[in-house]
């Protein structure tokens, strides 16, 4: 039985979290069929063979250039039937997760999202999910033959196991009802490291005093090839765009390294960063609660420490 993987792209490039989904599917065993929508670079699609895809389907219909939840779900439901796939794997995202939900109903599959690791198949099929905003995990058994799995970042290691494959065009018919939602326009940061994808995140809080001081954080982020994030008050005050807001009510990140500057470490902020592998905290208050959640800490003034740290990073490269 085949495993279908829905891969997402940004600016024509396959997202890293989607490459993880392909690797996850490969590790599950069974032939991996990948499907991508809209405009994607062909070389990027071919390269998915290296991560274990045996077949790459491309539904290039321009109606699918933008992510319409219903339309994507319908095509994925049909592709599962066409490819005889019992399992669909997607990466958790603002698009992938709701799409996965709709597909699960269409094909009558058991559904689990926010999955953090490969399943335990010693008895049945048990996945581990992150719950309570990263404060705990749940083990969930999926009983049926059909399964839809949405993965949290880092659920699988990226490994090259094969070589590039050819791309098979996949023609679709998108019905009128599936296009009930019209996307009229969009605004998207280009050429930046996307926050949910980033290996390193440099994040600033109210301690940064104002938006005019962000270039200092951005310098550090640039030196580290990192994405920038912020605390909720920072986006509430409009210092930074909402999509950079990290925490309980914002983006949950899971980078290798999270550097928090001038953020106190309120529990709601920690809920968005507790899946980070390493946390560095820079705060002028030695009693800031964030230090308790940190691996490395510096008590100091951000405006003094940041430029020095950026210099030291540049020197170390």
């Amino acid at each position: 039985m085949a495993i279908l993987v829905f891969v997402e792209s940004a600016e024509g490039k396959i997202k890293k979290t989607s490459v993880e989904a392909v690797c996850y599917a490969h590790a599950l065993g069974g032939p991996v069929v990948v499907i991508a929508f809209g405009h994607v670079d062909q070389s990027e699609l071919e390269a998915l063979g290296k991560y274990g895809a045996e077949k790459v389907l491309h539904a290039a219909d321009e109606k699918l250039n933008k992510g319409i939840i219903q339309a994507y779900a319908s095509v994925l439901g049909k592709a599962m039937k066409d490819e005889n796939a019992d399992v669909l794997v997607v990466a958790n995202s603002s698009l992938g997760t709701p799409v996965a939900a709709r597909v699960a109903i269409k094909v009558g599959a058991g559904l689990a999202s926010n999955i953090v690791s490969l399943p335990d198949t010693t008895s049945g099929f048990v996945v581990k999910r992150s719950i309570y905003s990263g404060k705990a995990f749940a083990y969930v058994e999926l009983k049926g033959q059909k399964k839809v799995l949405a993965l949290k970042k880092n659920a699988a290691d990226i490994k090259e196991v094969g070589k590039a494959v050819g791309v098979t065009p996949y023609s679709v018919e998108v019905s009128h009802t599936d296009l009930a939602v019209t996307i009229t326009s969009s605004e998207q940061a280009t050429g930046e490291v996307l926050l949910p994808e980033a290996n390193i995140v440099v994040s600033g809080g109210r301690g940064m005093k104002g938006p005019e001081h962000w270039p200092m954080l951005e310098e550090l982020a640039k030196a580290l090839h990192a994405a920038t994030g912020c605390s909720k008050p920072v986006s509430d005050m409009g210092w930074r765009p909402h999509h950079e807001h990290v925490g309980q009510t914002g983006i949950k990140v899971a980078p290798q390294l999270y550097i928090a500057v001038g953020i106190s470490g309120a529990i709601q902020h920690l809920a968005g960063v507790n899946s980070s592998k390493y946390i560095v905290v820079i705060n002028k208050d030695a009693d800031a609660p964030f230090f308790k959640a940190a691996d490395y800490g510096i008590v100091g003034d951000a405006f003094d420490v940041l430029p020095k740290l950026t210099e030291a990073i540049k020197r170390a490269k």
Partner: peptide
């Protein structure tokens, strides 16, 4: 939905933070 929660787990406790002097980045 054919999905059953079997058990919960807490993450392992975080190790102690290593403090570094501000003039020693």
């Amino acid at each position: 939905g054919g999905v059953k929660l079997t058990r919960f787990e807490l993450p392992p406790p975080k190790g102690a933070v290593k403090m570094i002097a501000a003039d020693n980045v």
